[in-house]
């Protein structure tokens, strides 16, 4: 069952050059216990989509959608207070820099005690205090922090990035959310720490049945256990579907480019020669191309790309492109 069901979500803002759609008819479905990864370079609208789900969108921007449902409830046409209550109870988010989220002025223990829902505790004051401590320790164990005594008394800046990120995950899951959104949680982490965080998130999604929306800028950092992926570029949907299908048989030129650029296979390129890349730069908001926004950087672009392509649905994936990859090219990039 889809916990999250988003259809044709559009967010429009006014710029000096007139209104701009910073998200343009984006779809996203995330099932119960599913790990879904949003992939896209910066400015593609990944964080914006996450904020739209949580309801943190600048009130001056126009948000429209055919559907913005969470757990079969319409978030968009709901009383604001009720929406805050539901998202606050059911959802949580972690970020690239855990220290931007943790309070530098209080210890990890203090912050975790704060994060434990009041309703969970019963009995006398003393009993509650003892209970809280046990829960904090249990929470730290759940995110793989073993030396809890030391961590509880530390201030966030005294922790390594990996441990700080684990603590921020502990805070996020303290109220047992049904959806965890992780915005580039491992970007700029060294490989072994990154693996640890991946294993932790995967375990949480399995043991807690939590749905996860992961956000990354690189296909190389899509978690191995991610079920589905959605590729965005400049606010538009490029390709989406089952991770294996999309990566093995990409239909969209952007997916193929992202796979080639991911450096998964440096053996294939002679050292010190040019790496594969997309030409040009990500356009600024004021200069978004009309039609398919990948147009100026796309190797397959033709005249009709000035019209936004409609969706094409295959068995396990869908894509928005007028000139998808030729079948032989697909097979090549799959090898």
């Amino acid at each position: 069952m889809n916990m999250l069901d988003i259809r044709n979500l559009t967010i429009e803002m006014d710029t000096s050059n007139g209104p701009v759609k910073i998200l343009d008819k984006v779809n996203l479905q995330v099932g119960e216990g599913e790990i879904h990864t949003l992939v896209g370079e910066s400015g593609s609208g990944k964080s914006l989509l996450a904020k739209a789900i949580l309801g943190f969108i600048n009130p001056r921007w126009r948000v429209t959608a055919d559907r913005l449902w969470w757990n079969n409830r319409d978030l968009l046409n709901m009383d604001a207070a009720l929406r805050r209550q539901i998202t606050g109870r059911d959802m949580a988010m972690i970020f690239q820099n855990p220290n931007s989220y943790l309070d530098p002025n209080s210890t990890v223990g203090e912050q975790l005690r704060e994060a434990i829902p009041k309703g969970d505790l019963r009995g006398t004051f003393i009993r509650k205090m003892v209970d809280k401590r046990t829960r904090v320790v249990r929470l730290l164990h759940r995110v793989g922090v073993k030396d809890h005594d030391q961590v509880i008394d530390s201030y966030p800046f005294e922790l390594s990035v990996g441990v700080a990120q684990k603590v921020s995950i502990a805070m996020a899951i303290a109220h047992r959310p049904k959806l965890l959104i992780a915005d580039e949680p491992t970007t700029a982490m060294e490989p072994s720490t990154r693996q640890q965080i991946y294993r932790l998130l995967t375990r949480l999604s399995i043991t807690q049945g939590m749905s996860m929306l992961m956000i990354t800028q690189d296909v190389a950092s899509v978690m191995p256990d991610s079920d589905n992926v959605t590729l965005l570029y400049c606010g538009q949907l490029m390709e989406a579907g089952n991770k294996q299908a999309v990566f093995d048989q990409p239909q969209h030129p952007y997916t193929e480019a992202m796979l080639r650029m991911s450096l998964r296979d440096t053996d294939a390129v002679e050292p010190k020669t040019h790496l594969p890349t997309l030409p040009g730069a990500i356009p600024t908001l004021q200069h978004l191309p009309i039609g398919c926004r990948l147009g100026p950087r796309c190797p397959n672009a033709q005249k009709d790309c000035v019209m936004v392509p409609k969706v094409t649905r295959l068995k396990q994936q869908s894509y928005h492109c007028h000139h998808p990859l030729a079948p032989n090219k697909r097979r090549k990039s799959a090898s």
Partner: peptide, 14 residues
């Protein structure tokens, strides 16, 4: 280079 977008990273390395 670690936190760069893939296309930017390849371009910068190039």
């Amino acid at each position: 280079l670690a936190a760069l977008d893939p296309s930017v990273r390849s371009q910068i390395i190039n």
